[in-house]
Write a protein that binds this DNA or RNA. Sequence first.
DNA 1: GACTTAATTAGCCATTTTGCTAATTATACG
DNA 2: CGTATAATTAGCAAAATGGCTAATTAAGTC
Lengths: 102, 102
Amino acid sequence: MPRKLSSEARLAALEEVFRALAHLARRQILLTMHFRGDQMTAGEIAGRFAHSWPTTTRHIRVLELAGLITQTRSGRERIYRLDRDRLAMVNEWLGWFEKAPE
Amino acid sequence: MPRKLSSEARLAALEEVFRALAHLARRQILLTMHFRGDQMTAGEIAGRFAHSWPTTTRHIRVLELAGLITQTRSGRERIYRLDRDRLAMVNEWLGWFEKAPE
DNA sequence: GACTTAATTAGCCATTTTGCTAATTATACG
DNA sequence: CGTATAATTAGCAAAATGGCTAATTAAGTC
């Protein structure tokens, strides 16, 4: 996977990122991961939310599709890790709105 | 309307803001407004997008509900103006993810 | 091998979103 | 007043979203 994205890929990624951030539960998952050291198993995440585990699994998948988290497997556990670079794409987008220099 | 929001109001506002930003057309409307001097009529906005005018009207309303744009009327035109403070709420949210100082 | 545990997948249903066209409201103009 | 223009509202249908329970997959344990 290329480290730098083409502009179409960037646009598509941004689309997924904004979509993923649209739901409160998913934003909370990201924050929870951040405050617990960027890394959690699916079970740890599901355990902290009121939703059923399958519902949380689906939110996790949306985050993963957006590239905001990545997965590694360890035995029967799936460990998810926060990807701050993807989150930074939002910052980049916001950068378009900066006032032009006078 | 208070300039500073209570934390519940802040949370609710953030919810609307992220929801509004989830759709490409709405992000494009905001960018278009920015590049055309922060201010456009409904017709100018609708004229720049492939969607039908009523569809654009609805996107505009979502943006307005999120507080990302505000409306003033002038004759039979509605002038919309970009509100950067609301956009800044996204930046604030992203701020939670900054690494703690070592 | 049988059983438990971690997690996802399948499938269902209610709600929300998003697009459209047609109808309506409201202002401007001859 | 009658008509044109700016914009919204109404109402519909297709698609996406988000919740659940039940079933399945895969790995660890006795």
